[in-house]
Design a protein around this nucleic acid. Structure first.
Lengths: 157, 157
DNA sequence: TATTGTTATACTCTATAACTATA
DNA sequence: TATAGTTATAGAGTATAACAATA
């Protein structure tokens, strides 16, 4: 059907895009990155530094090599991200005891405190992005994404 | 080579990441972009040019301004994308009859033929990415992403 | 000889401002 | 005055190669 120029995106021919799961995935992810990034900015974090901080605050903190692997980044990019977190006093580089080439990235107390705030605003950002879904649908979406990712990780070996 | 001296990603502390829908969304999208991009490369297309070509092949072909809007790109970026498609003979710029400033982007016959091939390889790429989901789960995922996107589009007005 | 982290560099993508031709 | 398309440019992000220290 032909529409005037004020027709909405959904009403116009853009319906072909809505049939493309790849387009939708890219679109929703862009929105998520934007909303989460905006929420984290006042805390001096970005989506990636937030992820690194989360890992650094666990009982089994990662080495830089691990970060490059899970974030699918080049090791040289991890250097910059860890530099920024370290400069902000949120993480420290500890030389590994078993391999002196390796840095273990551990969160400081300040980093752990910051992480608590960050996790809160990120959760709120997610609920904004997924607001149109009910709880069961949110869980199903989360579960589907998790299984795709886990399957991919298992393939790597 | 990826040896087994370390536990797998899923077995280690990375489980905290798997609880983050934003991380998973970014991860799955990166994988999708990579697989789709690889599949489209032999056809001289990239994910974004493919989207533009799809819209250009509809009965209600878009103006560049529309492309910038749905792809959430700056108009200046659309110029380059349309330039490439036009140079490849897949689309043409037609001056709008109602506003001579505007270009309507329409697919050529070659473009429509290329689109048929492209749609095929993209569909196959998607089934690779979503392989771990059964049909009902794929549909549910697609539906959730569609509703999030449509809701966002409706908010814009 | 291979790997971890690092530096340097080039390339791509994105964001911004200014210009033109139309409206 | 405002808008569609274009151009130019600077910034962020990404990819690649080389290097030192260590294994």
């Amino acid at each position: 059907m032909l529409m005037n120029k004020d027709a909405t995106a959904a009403q116009r021919g853009y319906s072909v895009l809505v049939d493309d799961p790849g387009f939708l995935l890219a679109r929703v992810n862009a929105r998520q990155l934007s909303v989460v990034g905006e929420a984290l900015r006042p805390l001096g974090l970005r989506p990636r530094s937030y992820t690194i901080l989360r890992l650094a605050a666990t009982n089994d903190p990662p080495m830089q090599r691990d970060l490059a692997h899970v974030l699918e980044l080049d090791p040289s990019q991890v250097v910059t991200l860890v530099d920024d977190l370290q400069r902000a006093g949120l993480v420290e580089r500890h030389q590994s005891e078993i391999d002196r080439r390796s840095n273990v990235i551990v969160a400081t107390d300040l980093g752990k405190a910051r992480l608590v705030e960050a996790a809160s605003v990120v959760t709120e950002a997610h609920s904004t992005v997924f607001a149109v879904l009910d709880t069961a649908e949110k869980d199903a979406l989360h579960d589907a994404l998790r299984r795709i990712t886990l399957a991919e990780w298992e393939e790597e070996e």
